[in-house]
């Protein structure tokens, strides 16, 4: 099992961090009910890193919102190990607070006592290597730094499950590589479970222990891959490229299938 390579503390009392069972979701559209997600069943084990891959508009964000509890499924059930934290595609940091205070707000809402917050926020900033940025306003940070603060804020919630919705999609390739390294390191250090949404196949393979491909319209679990490439990985490594190619082929097939109807 994937969990064996994780630190012992990652093993929780529950045997899943998220359990998605036969979840469907439809929205009221102009042509009646539009089925976006159809009978999705997916488990994320404690400490596991799963990437959700799919074409644009296939319902990845919808699924993540359901898991985060921001919306309710039309059918099926979702259980999570505590309230998950969610990192959005846009950083979603509060511009009226400094980087440090954004993190402290998450700590405060979680009930961390006042005298511990400052220190905790400092540690989290150190974890994402932004020690000097405590007092910086959001607009004074670069895009990559904002996403790192957002990651620190999500970690401040101390959830057992971290949901990430294409958090690095808007960044340039080099910054993204750096953040991939950061994320892998933090994941290994904290033992948090991650459900990471992306439409970038290489990114999915670079990060995950398991890649789940969603089909489009309606979104269904099309296929899954276990990624056994050992972890200090690089996006340009040959095994990563090889598996990416294989997945891309299947993804293309999925998309092509739509063109035929």
């Amino acid at each position: 099992m994937a969990t064996t390579i994780l630190k012992a503390e990652g093993a929780a009392s529950v045997e899943y961090a998220a359990r998605i069972e036969h979840v469907s979701k439809s929205f009221a559209g102009p042509a009646g009910q539009q089925l976006v997600l159809d009978d999705i069943t997916l488990d994320v084990a404690p400490g596991e890193f799963v990437t959700l891959l799919g074409a644009s508009g296939c319902g990845k964000s919808t699924l993540l919102n359901l898991v985060a509890g921001l919306d309710r499924p039309t059918a099926g059930g979702i259980t999570t190990d505590g309230r998950p934290s969610l990192m959005f595609q846009e950083h979603a940091l509060f511009p009226w607070l400094t980087a440090g205070k954004n993190i402290e707000l998450a700590l405060k809402l979680r009930g961390v006592p006042k005298n511990e917050r400052r220190g905790r926020a400092g540690e989290l900033l150190e974890l994402v290597r932004l020690t000097g940025s405590y007092g910086k306003r959001v607009h004074e940070l670069s895009g990559g730094m904002r996403q790192r603060v957002a990651l620190a804020r999500a970690l401040a919630q101390d959830s057992r499950l971290l949901l990430m919705d294409e958090p690095f999609a808007a960044l340039d390739a080099i910054t993204r590589d750096v953040l991939h390294d950061e994320l892998t390191r933090i994941w290994a250090e904290t033992g948090v479970s991650v459900l990471f949404v992306t439409h970038n196949v290489r990114e999915a393979v670079r990060l995950a222990q398991r890649v789940v491909l969603l089909s489009s319209r309606p979104g269904r679990v099309a296929r899954e891959w276990r990624v056994d490439i050992p972890q200090p990985r690089r996006i340009e490594d040959a095994p990563v490229a090889e598996l990416s190619l294989e997945i891309t082929e299947v993804l293309r097939g999925e998309i092509r299938r739509h063109g035929q109807h």
Binding site: E140, I174, D181
Partner: peptide, 15 residues
């Protein structure tokens, strides 16, 4: 990892 790169990027992007 890409630690050195990271510092360079931050320095470049922050105004």
């Amino acid at each position: 990892g890409l630690g050195g790169l990271e510092a360079g990027l931050d320095a470049l992007e922050t105004s």
